[in-house]
Amino acid sequence: MVLRRFLPALPPLLAFAGILAIWELLSLYFGLDGLPPPSVALRQVPVILTDPQSLFDIVDSLRRMAIGIVLALVFAIPVGLWMGRSRFAAAFFNPLLSVIYPVPKAALMPIIMLWLGVGDASKILVIFLGVTLPLIYHSYQGSRAVEEKLLWSAAAMGMQPPARLARIVLPAALPEILVGCRTALVLGLITMVTSEMIARQTGIGNLVFQSLEMGIYDTVYAMIVIIGALGFILDVLFERLRGWLVGWAEPAQSIIVGST
């Protein structure tokens, strides 16, 4: 009974232990300063997490990421929903998005820096650009898949098009939009770090790149672990939020083995 309860946690634990074992072996094999063993690097994790300045850096990066993502949500969701319900909008935006999508957003940082300076605004714009496209795409797909009957019923009851978009299309497309949000969260984390590579005052990038420039590799790897853990925690929290918001849309699947 106890074993069955803990069984689901076993595969991820094994995967994590496997990565640590491979990392340790590679470190022993190569013996490079640039690849410290996990036993050394992980010792830096509590050091970083108990240092007030480092915690401020981490929180400040997350603040910029939150602003970038919220701005992207405000912009991308209406655009995506509109594209899903309007052929004109889809025809207008689709080619633009296809062109913009493959451009590495962090590589735009030097140019953005020229427009917006070296402060928060340029970093937030890079995060915004990084997360906007998956949000638009998933909002677009969600909006396209809304049942016409719902919209007809609402129209028949006198609901105007903007109200239909806000009160029917948006909630019905929400499960798909939230899939885009989940992708955006990960991309936000990536662009958050890369946006701090060229110019920075505070932030996670401050900790990572400063340590990298000074060859303090145990801190670099500890920060990579912390960023990975942040991604995991944000994903778990987001999945909880998603379940709360759109639990009605989850296909509750159960697999019955051996039955006919």
Partner: peptide, 9 residues
């Protein structure tokens, strides 16, 4: 034999 059961919501 595996059967998927799905609750429609």
């Amino acid at each position: 034999m595996i059967r998927f059961r799905q609750k429609q919501r």
